[in-house]
Amino acid sequence: MPAVPTMPDINETKLRNATIAVLVDNEPGILARVVGLFSGRGYNIESLTVAPVDEDRAISRITIVTSGTEMVIEQIKAQLDRLVPVRKVCDLSIEGPHLARELMLIKVVCTGEQRMEALRLADAFRARVVDATAASFVFEMTGNGDKLDAFTALMRPLGLAEVVRTGVIGIARGTYSLKA
């Protein structure tokens, strides 16, 4: 007999974050469908990333970070799941331990003492220097959102000029793997 589906805790009113992985057919309009679903129903998107992930580029993997009550997150997953090109929906936040990573490129324009300080901090945070001129650095950094936020905050007084972040991607730890 198939497992009995469990019910979300519908009385839980606390908001929680959810990192949702979605495998979809890589076809035109799919991103508009997903984004339209979120805007049309008033769900929150904290970040969204997407790229094809299989050999023949037929399947894309979308990672959405959102927040809501337990009931809202259940709704989001059910609404995603009934989109025709959606193959799998997985709430990484509750399916077990998972890794979440984000890539950031950050430009700092500074000279003199501030340059030394920026470099020192980059080293402590394991950010890589990927571009340098006499008056600037571009650092590359991966990690979870908090770490990137902390580094960005430290760069602000040192001449923070530009930040670009990819949004979060996530994957379950262990042998479990999400397949289309």
Partner: peptide, 14 residues
Amino acid sequence: DQSSINKNVPVDIA
């Protein structure tokens, strides 16, 4: 439609 469950009214058995 799974998305109709618990959308407006929380239920005990779906």
